[in-house]
């Protein structure tokens, strides 16, 4: 928990210098002109063969565990639902397919890169932000270690390096922001996927494509693009042959979740608690947790997600 302390002092410095000086926060938590016009990824679960090559590609591209491809060939683990952890930004789960028992439905999960993310809105210091192309990116140096993002995320995505003694970070899919913006490549998972079940492109074009696919093959897909409206829209979109609730997805409304988290923050500011005091308060909270395990809230979140 020492990082919290480090982060605390870093941000304390920031706070002292110019209070909440995170410039993009407002972009992230309020609708902007470019909302939904960034990049996206369309996951066609009817094409996904459950090979876990995306897991390997992601691991390799981000130097997560550094295991060889052979470490990702065991497909038997697909049947026990897995979640991301601090060493995996994406996992593939497999669900039975009553329409064809020979072809189970495999679903790759990762951060959904919400258009109006709850995580960025919950983050008090702007360590999580929506980049220009729609990717929700994390900057470790700003992070307090408060893990509010983990609680706020409706998909239970961010994980935390609990056993990292000095520089624990919040971990989640980066949408390969570096690769995409600086190397001109497509995300590593999409590049490797053998059947090209992952299509990277403009979110608006992907939505168009998704609806065309449904219209052209009504017997193949249910008429629902997951992520089109859920929590105000997400950059990752899914097509599926069966109801999403059967495939481990949560049933979520179209309302953006920041509308739930924002009032809390706004209230804090409204009641005139100066940022410095706020961070002092939060820092104190973090100190209080410093020897404890995960805060109980994150357990609750995991429980909910797994039940779904």
């Amino acid at each position: 928990m020492k990082v919290s302390r480090r982060g605390f002092f870093q941000v304390l410095g920031l706070g002292a210098a110019g209070a909440v000086a995170s410039p993009d926060r407002s972009d992230a938590s309020s609708p902007s002109a470019s909302l939904g016009e960034g990049m996206g990824m369309l996951v066609d679960t009817t094409e996904c063969i459950g090979c876990r090559k995306c897991e390997y590609a992601c691991d390799h591209a981000h130097e997560l565990t550094g295991q060889p491809p052979s470490a990702f060939e065991d497909l038997s683990i697909l049947d026990t639902p897995r979640r991301m952890d601090e060493d995996s930004f994406t996992v593939v789960n497999r669900y039975p397919n009553p329409d064809n028992p020979e072809k189970p439905i495999s679903v790759k999960i990762q951060c959904m890169h919400c258009l109006r993310p709850a995580c960025t809105s919950a983050c008090l210091v702007g360590a999580l932000q929506v980049a220009e192309n729609g990717a929700v990116v994390y900057e470790a140096w700003k992070c307090l270690g408060c893990r509010y993002c983990m609680v706020a995320c409706p998909f239970g995505v961010p994980t935390y390096e609990y056993h990292e003694p000095f520089t624990p970070q919040v971990r989640k899919c980066t949408f390969c922001h570096e690769r995409v913006t600086h190397e001109g490549k497509i995300p590593a998972c999409a590049e490797m996927c053998p059947p090209m079940a992952l299509t990277f492109g403009q979110r608006s074009e992907l939505l168009e494509l998704a609806h065309k696919k449904i219209a052209d093959n009504p017997e193949r897909y249910i008429n629902h693009v997951y992520g089109e409206h859920e929590v105000g829209g997400t950059s990752w979109l899914y097509l599926a042959p069966r109801e999403f609730e059967e495939l481990g997805f949560l049933k979520l409304g179209p309302g953006a979740l920041p509308s739930l988290t924002e009032p809390i923050q706004h209230a804090i500011f409204k009641f005139g608690i100066p940022p410095l005091t706020l961070y002092g308060l939060l820092g104190a909270m973090m100190w209080a947790y410093r020897n404890g395990d995960d805060p109980p809230v994150s357990h609750d979140m995991e429980g909910e997600t797994n039940d779904a």
Partner: peptide
């Protein structure tokens, strides 16, 4: 976007049946 590249086309054709059996 709706037209996969050669790698995707091959793998989709082969694996749609072969992985089934």
């Amino acid at each position: 976007l709706g037209q996969p590249g050669l790698k995707g086309a091959y793998h989709r054709q082969c694996l749609s049946c072969h992985r089934e059996w």
